[in-house]
Nucleic acid binder design. Sequence first.
DNA 1: CAGGATCCGTTTCGATACTG
DNA 2: CAGTATCGAAACGGATCCTG
Lengths: 149, 149
Amino acid sequence: MPKINPAPKRRSGCPLNASIEILGDRWSLLIVRDMMLRNFHSYKQFLESHERIATNILADRLRDLEKHGIITPQRDPEDGRKVIYRLTAKGIDLAPVMAEMVLWSASHEDVGNQELVRQIRADKTKFVAGVRQRWAAQQTKSSTNGNSK
Amino acid sequence: MPKINPAPKRRSGCPLNASIEILGDRWSLLIVRDMMLRNFHSYKQFLESHERIATNILADRLRDLEKHGIITPQRDPEDGRKVIYRLTAKGIDLAPVMAEMVLWSASHEDVGNQELVRQIRADKTKFVAGVRQRWAAQQTKSSTNGNSK
DNA sequence: CAGGATCCGTTTCGATACTG
DNA sequence: CAGTATCGAAACGGATCCTG
C-alpha cells in the first residue's frame, strides 16, 4: 500500500472524521452489507455478487476493512485453501447503521428483499439482535475445534 | 451528468442498490452531515468546513444531491444573490442513518463534539425529532415571506 | 479452483486558476 | 460569493496472469 495518507490534520472537531473512509466508500459498504445481510464470507462470493466488483478493488477493500478492524480473515478449518472473512465486533456494531440505511433506501426507492425490509421495520432491535446472534453462533462454531484468537 | 448508467441489471435483489451512490460517497455524506448537524446552508460554509472539499467537487456533489432529491437550492429571500441549500423531506429522513453513523464512529474512535454524541446516545428518537423540528421551523420561516426583513 | 497480483486504458478526483 | 475550466494524479474496471 503506497498510499501515504498525508492527513496530518488532527481535526477531530466533527463527527465521522475518521470513519468516513469506510462509511463513505461504496465497495466497503457493499461488502459489509453482504456479510451482514446475506451471510457472505468468501472472496468468491463477493465477486459473484452485487455490482460486479473487480478483483483488484475487492482485494483492496478487504485489506482496508481489515486495517480498520472491521473484518478479519481466517483459514477455513475444513478447507485449507479457503479464506473466510468474518466481521469483528466493531464490524457487527455497524448493524444499526446498516438497518437504517436499508430502511431509508427502501422507503425512497425500489429495493428487493422486501421481506428483510419488513422485518427491520417491524422491529429494529430484534433485527440487530438477530444479526448479533447469528454472528456469535458462527464465532463459536469456528473456534470449537481450534480455539482461535 | 452524462453517465448513461448502463445498468440493465434489474437486480434489485439487494437492499441499498440505488442509494449506495449517495450513502457510499464521502463528500455527499459530509455535506449532509454539515447540513443536518451543523446547520450549514451555503456553498461557502461547506467550503470552509470539514476536510477541505475542492470547489468543483462541491459543486458536483451539490448537483448529485439535488438530482437524488436530497437537497434543494433556493434563493435567500433576504439576499437575492445568495443560494441556500436545504434538505428535502427525503434528506431529513437520513437523520436516523446519520445518528447511527455518529454513534458508531464515536464508540470506535476519537471524535469531537462529545456533547452531540451524548445527546444522541441519551435519546436517539428525541435527537431525530429535534432535527426535524429545526428543519420544519426553517421551512416555514422561509416560506412565510412577509414578516421577515 | 480460490485468492489474489499485475498491467493498462478510462474515469474520477483534487488543487488551483479563472470568471460572472 | 458561487461556481466553471483545466490538468496532472489517483482510482477504477476489466482482462489476464500467478500461486498454492
